[in-house]
Design a protein around this nucleic acid. Sequence first.
RNA 1: UGGGGUGUCGCCAAGUGGCAAGGCACCGGGUUUUGAUCCCGGCAUUCGCAGGUUCGAAUCCUGCCACCCCAGCCA
Length: 552
Amino acid sequence: MENTPASNFLQNIVRDDLAAGRVTEVVTRFPPEPNGYLHIGHAKSICVNFGLAEANGGRCNLRFDDTNPEKESQEFIDSILEDVRWLGFSWDGEVRFASAYFQQLYDWAVYLVEQGKAYVCDLNAEQAREYRGTLTEAGRNSPYRDRSVEENLDLLERMKAGEFAEGERVLRAKIDMASPNMNMRDPILYRIRKVQHHQTGKDWVIYPTYDFAHGQEDAIEGITHSVCTLEFEDHRPLYDWFINNLPVPSKPKQYEFGRLNPSYTVTSKRKLKQLVDEGVVSGWDDPRMPTVSGMRRRGYTPAAIRKFCEMIGTTRSDGVVDVAMLEFAIREDLNENAPRAMAVLNPLKIILTDYPEDKVELLSAPAHPTREELGERELPFTREVYIDAEDFREEANKKYKRLVLGKRVRLRNAYVIEADSVVRDEQGNITEVHAHTIPNTIGENPEDGVKPKGVIQWVSASHGKQAEVRLYDRLFNHEAPDRGDNDFMAHINPDSLQVVEQAWIEPSLADAKPEQGFQFEREGYFVADRDEHSAQHPVFNKTIGLRDTWQG
RNA sequence: UGGGGUGUCGCCAAGUGGCAAGGCACCGGGUUUUGAUCCCGGCAUUCGCAGGUUCGAAUCCUGCCACCCCAGCCA
């Protein structure tokens, strides 16, 4: 339960670098492209990068890798900033932007041209693909590869000046068209994009590619350990090539770890977008989405998400993590911190025939079973109460520990009652149950020694409030909805959302603030909806159910 | 068929030549005014496979096999 400092290969590398004096301080960065919402996978990356710095007395920058204006926007910048803050991390200094380094990057491009290590290529996209070769065949040199430095300089300047159309020319590094590593086959450094950039406006019509930008951004910021995911491993030789061939102010090193793949989940941006676009979910922050904003609205807590990231570790192997682990982390945090309350989702009225009609007893109950400091809340007890229909049966075997006709049950934090009879409607459905209280059973067992079989939650029919409760379940009913040739849309769980329009909640819950989480005893953890909850119209989202081992 | 990776219990994951940590899940049992929590106990003679080196191998060597990534002017 104690926080053993997460030891992993990255931590070991940092520790050794610090010990050997290769670096005096660890500086990492979280470098999202502002082209979408952050999801659970990004949360892991955030924990890894900020965590590595934090654990070693270093710093972590937040830098937007905004080199492709076509797909980016201020909206995404804002949401990413909010999500990182919400997760509880503080970046070093101001927020950084790759676009703030565009001039420096351009100057370095000119430098490479001057060194004869870059050239302007007139091949169009299709031709370039042909020249690139395949995985098993070497590529061929571009016919423009041997232009003079002067001509390249002139052409590059004119690309920058907007003299050419998009796609007409690119700047490429002169490396090796026969390299078995595709990334080294004269990679593109700059392409023409005549679009408005969310940060730099119309200043540029050429934009650097990821490969030409990322390592240099790291170098400018003095990043010591540039941590990314495994698919960038093949780019490392190129990353190093730029760092070694340019007069950069520092020499960062890239390290890769395995991406997080939770089971029963999709995290690809394209697929998440499809879920939103096709109305499968209500938006990017739908509580069923694995986005940070979705998890937030679902009632997951930053502490639980961070704990989960710590639990799964950071390695170079690629696997599928059981979402049960995430769920465990959520329950663990909420069990410790969420105040308890009672709610009845499927109401069945109980009339306590021995209890005076106008009588109201103000009982009090602890907000938490073990944490007294969380205080108490008041529970009005009345003649008519609601219990869950699931908690009553006319007859049942001994394994059923709830209310049964002729038997007793404890109303949580209140009296023991005994069921006497049922009232039915014309269709024969039970509409209410008549019962009576057992005297002196508040905080005490019945004096006649006949103990109740179980304990159930209840809400006063006259003093309780009504609420909308949204019951969420996994969005997919397949462990790996998008593995192989699976059509993930075919594995959508049709029961991932069930809305209870009129649940009954104990009166104290009317004071809940949006985003406040509770445990509805015997039901699970719920959170007051961030956007739609109000005292007038309470709305609670089910975060996660309680562990349920009842085999009945 | 080129290059780069990864293979330790159902899942995640320690371990780096000395005789398989831990967590999740699961299965027992105890406590309990939440069938929750909590507490106790169980859960890999075996580390992708096959050889080899060694007194000794998950750890070293050789050869296989499986899976992942790379042919965007995306990141």
